[in-house]
């Protein structure tokens, strides 16, 4: 399974990076979502997968005995998902505001940076 998931993750990375290379900010944001998913799956895969067996201790027991899925990457991913989501929302609002100002989401419209170095 790791083999196939690794290929999928690579594919997701490729798709995400491809989106980043497009001239549209919304597509860039979309690419970042894809990259977020790719990263989460990477973390999920990385320390070995376990079918079934969620890391929940059965009621009344003191400890969980193997086999069970590694809870550590899950905790990492949960944290990462939330962080990604928060920052993505911020980015989208920025895109939204910038588009209101410029009327487009094309990155080529974002060139006021050059204003003074042309002189």
């Amino acid at each position: 399974m790791e083999l196939f998931l690794a290929i999928t993750v690579g594919g997701l990375f490729a798709a995400g990076f491809y989106c980043l290379m497009l001239h549209s900010i919304v597509r860039i944001a979309l690419g970042l979502v894809l990259l977020g998913s790719a990263t989460n799956l990477l973390i999920f895969t990385i320390n070995g997968l376990q079918r079934g067996f969620a890391p929940l201790v059965p009621e009344g027991q003191e400890a969980l005995s193997p086999p069970f899925a590694d809870p550590v990457p899950q905790a990492f991913i949960l944290t990462a998902i939330v962080i990604n989501f928060g920052l993505l929302a911020l980015l989208l609002v920025l895109v939204h505001r910038a588009a209101q100002e410029t009327g487009t989401d094309d990155t080529r419209a974002l060139r006021t940076e050059l204003k003074d170095s042309k002189q």
């Binding site: 900010i25 860039i28 920052l87 993505l88 980015l91 100002e101 410029t102 974002l110 006021t112 940076e113």
Partner: peptide, 15 residues
Amino acid sequence: QEQLEASIKYMSLSL
């Protein structure tokens, strides 16, 4: 506007 632009570039690359 220039700040929005700057933020978008900064954010995209930082993310």
